[in-house]
């Protein structure tokens, strides 16, 4: 299970490591360190205070304000991004811990392999299905759905998956599966029915 994985493991489809050497760890006692990342396919080198979360690095330093801060405590999913292809809450990850990782935010979805360079199929489906109202949760919903589709494709179960399902194939995404797997993304506008339809459009 360790093969072909970044520090965050993951199905492995979008793993790409920064091609330059890692800087040495900061001297003992320092409260900031240099980090090198790829963000939406672009190399990023930054000196970060160790307390900086990935979300704050993206929004405050890299001007990537697509990822939203809803709760800042892992409770809403508005900050969801992909790290080494896996969806995570960027408000609870320290940027310094991601040295060498590959980050994709909503701004980069259109440039991932499933997209046409203009929009990711999920973004198109969200538009077609009118899967938002205020749009605040949408970037997180989109990144979460991209990660979720890869998880189901790679055979990861959810709590509503039939326990007898073979462990070596993809998990079919019923409406219940999508609801459960997307439960980490709250929508205060209650756009859930249309979000479900949009995700289901991309599944089928």
């Amino acid at each position: 299970m360790e093969s072909n994985k970044g520090p965050h493991g993951g199905p492995g489809t979008t793993i790409r490591y920064a091609p330059w050497p890692r800087p040495a760890d900061s001297p003992p006692g320092a409260t900031g360190s240099p980090v090198t990342l790829r963000v939406n396919d672009a190399p990023v080198e930054a000196e970060v205070d160790h307390r900086t979360t990935l979300l704050d690095l993206l929004r405050e330093r890299l001007a990537l304000t697509g990822s939203k801060k809803g709760c800042d405590h892992g409770q809403c999913g508005a900050c969801t991004v992909l790290v080494d292809g896996r969806r995570v809450n960027s408000c609870l990850v320290l940027a310094v811990a991601l040295d060498g990782c590959d980050v994709v935010t909503v701004e980069g979805l259109a440039r991932t392999e499933d997209a046409d360079g203009d929009l990711h199929p999920l973004q198109r489906a969200f538009l077609e299905r009118d899967a938002f109202q205020c749009g605040y949760c949408t970037p997180g919903q989109l990144c979460s759905a991209v990660g979720m589709l890869a998880e189901a494709q790679s055979g990861q179960p959810s709590v509503v998956t039939d326990p007898d399902l073979a462990t070596d194939g993809p998990v079919p995404l019923t409406d219940d599966e999508i609801r459960e797997r997307m439960s980490g993304n709250l929508c205060r506008c209650g756009a859930y029915p249309h979000i479900l339809e949009a995700v289901q459009d991309v599944v089928s």
């Binding site: 965050h8 995570v88 990850v93 326990p163 462990t167």
Partner: peptide, 23 residues
């Protein structure tokens, strides 16, 4: 884990969210 300890797999999957469990 899924095959031998379904109780462990189910317990993990009934906690938190997909994002949090990835971390």
């Amino acid at each position: 884990v899924r095959e031998r300890y379904p109780v462990v797999s189910q317990a993990v999957l009934s906690g938190a969210s997909g994002q949090l469990r990835n971390m």
